[in-house]
């Protein structure tokens, strides 16, 4: 019974074995993408988002559509055409191919939203980070924030559009001049919360250098926060653009834009519904896909969802 003897002898104690944590090695970004791509809906919406974005930036280059030029304005036979093999989305009241019009409009709306979002989020994060850490700056910025946030954002943008006049850069200016403030406030609150969490206090006590604190302790949490900001900001800014343009105080008529399209084509909604349906559907899909992809990515980038 040598076997029994062996079984009932003391085994050698392996410290490493006892310390083995059963979980696999953890890599933040790998987990983010794994969690994200595990969902089929995420892949679907991401594919849609990418194709819509690419389409709206490439198609106008090919079509060369310019709202100031209407080559078919004197050829009534080209007006109001229903969707066909030649004109996928049909034509509008001036004989323009709606396929071209819609993508140029989307490009314009997206360009404005991208640039304004980049500024708002960039400035917002920078100021917010400083704001969250600086005790001296806090009351000043808080007072400014309290006053500015009393006026609804859309009202502020309209007011500023009025002051700057209509135009592409004027609109971006109107959207960004106070737009960063609420983002900075949001970041400030997040920074304050994360900064004072026990593990960060502990980490600081242990002498972790600031750079490591930022990259290892704070940033992984902020990725999710920033993703949240982006997915709310871009559809939000597209919304602002469409409202301003629809109300006739946004982009001038020489610019293609989704908001102006709704404004101009709405009078044909009963007679030629395709003129409203196609811009509407594209506008809806673009904004929803941004929102959903962003939301799913924000979920996936929250370390608490990793397993």
């Amino acid at each position: 019974m040598a076997k029994t003897a062996e079984r009932f002898a003391f085994a050698t104690f392996d410290v490493l074995e006892s310390e083995r944590i059963a979980g696999p090695r953890y890599s933040y970004w790998k987990s983010v993408f794994q969690t994200f791509f595990k969902r089929k809906t995420a892949i679907f919406w991401l594919a849609l988002l990418l194709s819509l974005t690419l389409m709206s930036f490439i198609q106008p280059l090919v079509s060369g559509y310019d709202p100031a030029v209407a080559p078919n304005i004197n050829t009534p036979s080209t007006w109001y055409q229903k969707p066909s093999a030649e004109h996928w989305f049909g034509t509008d009241d001036r004989g323009n191919d709606l396929w071209d019009v819609v993508w140029s409009g989307t490009r314009m709306s997206l360009s404005i939203a991208f640039i304004a979002a980049a500024i708002n989020i960039g400035v917002g994060i920078l100021v917010g980070a400083v704001w969250g850490y600086s005790k001296r700056l806090d009351p000043i910025l808080l007072a400014v924030y309290n006053v500015v946030s009393n006026v609804p954002y859309i009202l502020r943008s309209m007011m500023l559009m009025y002051i700057f006049g209509r135009g592409f850069w004027q609109m971006i200016l109107a959207m960004t001049i106070t737009g960063w403030l609420s983002i900075a406030f949001f970041i400030r609150t997040q920074v304050m919360i994360i900064r004072d969490r026990e593990y960060n206090l502990a980490s600081r006590c242990l002498g972790t250098p600031l750079k490591r604190m930022v990259t290892r302790n704070i940033l992984p949490y902020m990725v999710s926060v920033i993703a949240t900001l982006i997915y709310q900001e871009i559809p939000g800014l597209i919304n602002t653009e469409t409202i301003l343009s629809y109300l006739g105080i946004g982009l001038p008529s020489t610019y293609p834009s989704l908001g102006r399209m709704i404004d101009v084509y709405w009078s044909f909604v009963d007679t030629y519904p395709h003129m409203i349906v196609f811009p509407g559907v594209v506008m809806g899909l673009v904004t929803i896909s941004f929102y959903v992809v962003g939301q799913l990515f924000a979920d996936a980038s929250d370390p608490r969802t990793h397993r």
Partner: peptide, 11 residues
């Protein structure tokens, strides 16, 4: 909620 929060108000 997603529908309303994402698409433009106008739409």
């Amino acid at each position: 909620i997603v529908f309303i929060s994402s698409i433009p108000t106008l739409l």
